[in-house]
Design a binder for these strands. Structure first.
Length: 353
DNA sequence: ATTCCACAGGAATACTCGGATA
DNA sequence: TATCCGAGTATTCCTGTGGAAT
C-alpha cells in the first residue's frame, strides 16, 4: 500500500472534479443553446469526440446545471442498450418506482409520456452501442416526445444521419458539438489538479507528468496511469516509474472499460492480445474465433456462436481497443483483419471519414 | 469470364424469464 | 395455477460480397 495517496477518489475515473478544465467553451455552447439562465429552450444535440476527451463529464456536469423545474436523465447505451432498458430507467427517474421486466414497450412508452410534465433533458451516452443492439426506435420515440431534448454522445460518429432512419433523423435534427483532443497543456492541468488533491504534496515529478501527457491523449488513460504510478511509488512519482508502469496502466484502463461488458468480451480481448503476441498483428475473424473457442473449452465454458462474437468484435472496435479493416470480398473473402489499437502512438489519427 | 475465398451481417428461430390474465 | 405474451439473449440459417487467382 502506498502512503503517497491521501485520498484515492480524485484518481478515479468516475470522479467529477469541482473545477472543470479545458472544456469551458463547449460548456458555454451548451448553456447558451439551452438558455439555462434566462428563457430556456430545449435543443437536440449530437456530441462527438474521441475517447477520453471529456464528453461524459461535460454532459453529466451540464445536466446538473438545470434547476429543479427540469427533469434530467443520463443514459449510457452500453448499459441501456435496448429501448426497454432505457425507458425503464427513464421511468424510474421520473417516478422513483422500478418496473422490472415483463412489461410491454408500448405500455412503458405511454407511462413515460404521462410522467413527462416538466421540460426534460435526456443524454444518451455511447449511443452507438444502443443503435447497434436495438436500432433507433428509442431515439425516434424520444425525439417525438413533447417538451423533451435529446443529447446523443458518440466517440465513433460525427453525425448520426447515416445510421438513423430518415424519419428519426428528421425529428431529431440535432445541433452538433465536437470535442477535440485535449491540448497537452489542458491534459497536464487536469492531471496535476487531481494529483494535488489526491497525493502528498511534491510527490509528482514534472517530467513524469510530461511523459504521460506526451504519450496519450486519452485523459482516462492518463488518470489511470497516474493512479497506477501513485499506487506503485514509494515516495515520489518519477518519470522512470511512470515508464515502468506504462503497460500495466494500460491494462488497468482496458480492464475498467471491459468491466462494463461480459466475461466473453474480456476473453475475446485477451485472446486477440495473446494471438497478436504470438503471431503478430493482422488476424482474421476466423482465427480469432477458433482460438477464442479453444480458450473457452480450456476454461470449461461453452463458447458463444460465431455470429455473436462478430458483434462483440464490433463492440471492441467501438471501444477503440481493436482496429479492423474490412474486406468486402476479394481473394481474402469477406472478413475483418484485426489488430490491437496502438494506443500510445500519439500523433496522426486525423484521416478518418 | 469464371471461380473462389471466408466471413459480414440480416432475418428467422429457439429458449428463458417475469408479468398479466383468466 | 395454468397459460399466454413479449422482452432479452443467443443460435441457426443463409445470402451477398468483389477483386485476385485461375
Amino acid at each position: 500500500m502506498s502512503d503517497l495517496i491521501d485520498t484515492r477518489t480524485p484518481l478515479e475515473l468516475s470522479h467529477l472534479p469541482a473545477q472543470f478544465v479545458g472544456r469551458e467553451a463547449e460548456q458555454d455552447t451548451l448553456t447558451d443553446a439551452f438558455g439555462v439562465e434566462g428563457e430556456s429552450r430545449l435543443q437536440n444535440f449530437h456530441v462527438y469526440g474521441p475517447r477520453g476527451t471529456g464528453k461524459t463529464h461535460l454532459l453529466q456536469r451540464f445536466l446538473t446545471t438545470f434547476p429543479p423545474t427540469f427533469t434530467t436523465c443520463y443514459l449510457s447505451g452500453i448499459h441501456q442498450n435496448t429501448q426497454y432498458k432505457s425507458l425503464e430507467r427513464l421511468y424510474h427517474l421520473l417516478t422513483g418506482t422500478t418496473l422490472g421486466t415483463g412489461h410491454h414497450v408500448a405500455d412503458i412508452q405511454r407511462k413515460v409520456e404521462e410522467q413527462v410534465t416538466l421540460p426534460t433533458v435526456i443524454v444518451v451516452d455511447e449511443v452507438d452501442f444502443l443503435l447497434l443492439n436495438d436500432g433507433d426506435d428509442l431515439l425516434y420515440y424520444l425525439t417525438r416526445l413533447e417538451n423533451t431534448a435529446v443529447i446523443t454522445v458518440s466517440a465513433n460518429r460525427r453525425s448520426l444521419e447515416e445510421p438513423l432512419d430518415e424519419r428519426t433523423y428528421s425529428s431529431f435534427h440535432p445541433q452538433h458539438l465536437t470535442l477535440n483532443e485535449y491540448t497537452a497543456n489542458a491534459a497536464r492541468q487536469i492531471l496535476a489538479d487531481r494529483a494535488r488533491k489526491a497525493l502528498q504534496p511534491q510527490s509528482l515529478q514534472r517530467a513524469a507528468l510530461t511523459y504521460i501527457t506526451a504519450t496519450t491523449q486519452n485523459i482516462s488513460i492518463g488518470i489511470t496511469w497516474l493512479r497506477e504510478a501513485a499506487e506503485t511509488a514509494d515516495d515520489r512519482i518519477t518519470r522512470d516509474l511512470v515508464q515502468n508502469v506504462e503497460v500495466t496502466a494500460y491494462h488497468e484502463f482496458v480492464k475498467s472499460l471491459l468491466n462494463e461488458f461480459t466475461t466473453h468480451h474480456r476473453r475475446l480481448y485477451n485472446t486477440i492480445a495473446r494471438l497478436e503476441q504470438e503471431r503478430g498483428p493482422l488476424l482474421t475473424t476466423g482465427t480469432v474465433y477458433s482460438e477464442y473457442s479453444k480458450r473457452c473449452e480450456t476454461a470449461g465454458v461453452a463458447p458463444l456462436s460465431e455470429r455473436r462474437i462478430s458483434d462483440f468484435l464490433t463492440h471492441l472496435e467501438l471501444l477503440d481497443l481493436i482496429e479492423a479493416t474490412y474486406y468486402r470480398g476479394g481473394r481474402k473473402g469477406k472478413t475483418r483483419e484485426i489488430k490491437l489499437v496502438d494506443w500510445n502512438s500519439r500523433s496522426d489519427s486525423e484521416e478518418t471519414s
